[in-house]
């Protein structure tokens, strides 16, 4: 179902990052979840995991958390590499990417919530062939 994504910092996620614990399981605990309003949570079928997909087709699997802090029709993911898989690069030509208020697809997910190291390996391995692309195609 279509839903509005907001991302942002939390104190615990902040502590993890500032404390240099970015490649630990604690980071996964503090940043790889998704806050969902109770009504939406039921509508999704009370999932353990959810899969978020953005308009480019990139997707990430996160733990689902039910919370009444969230308004209906919105989800919140703490700042971090997980959220940024689905944050889009469109900046309205201001330099600031769409960290907040962007429409995404949410559905019940399966498969593991990746740890930070696995996530980096899966999505961002250094390309060996760096000249393989013409810069003109850069944007997409």
């Amino acid at each position: 179902m279509e839903i509005i994504l907001n991302t942002g910092g939390t104190a615990f996620q902040g502590a993890c990052v500032k404390g240099g614990r970015k490649f630990t399981d604690e980071y996964t605990q503090e940043a790889a979840y998704c806050d969902i309003n109770p009504e939406d949570f039921v509508a999704l079928g009370k999932p353990w995991l959810v899969k978020i997909t953005n308009e480019y087709g990139d997707s990430v699997v996160l733990q689902a958390k039910k919370t009444d802090r969230q308004q209906k029709g919105e989800i919140f993911i703490p700042r971090g590499p997980w959220a940024n898989i689905v944050v889009t690069t469109y900046t309205e030509s201001t330099g600031s990417p769409a960290y907040k208020n962007r429409k995404v697809e949410i559905e019940e997910g399966s498969g593991p919530v990746l740890g930070p190291v696995t996530l980096m390996k899966k999505y961002y391995s250094k390309r060996t062939n760096r000249t393989g692309r013409t810069p003109a195609e850069g944007g997409a």
């Binding site: 990052v17 970015k22 480019y56 990139d58 700042r79 971090g80 590499p81 940024n84 898989i85 689905v86 944050v87 889009t88 690069t89 990417p97 769409a98 980096m120 999505y123 961002y124 391995s125 250094k126 390309r127 760096r130 692309r133 850069g138 997409a140």
Partner: peptide, 14 residues
């Protein structure tokens, strides 16, 4: 690496 959107980090890999 952790705070930019995926498409931007992908360019950093290149």
């Amino acid at each position: 690496g952790a705070h930019l959107p995926k498409r931007a980090v992908e360019r950093m890999c290149e």
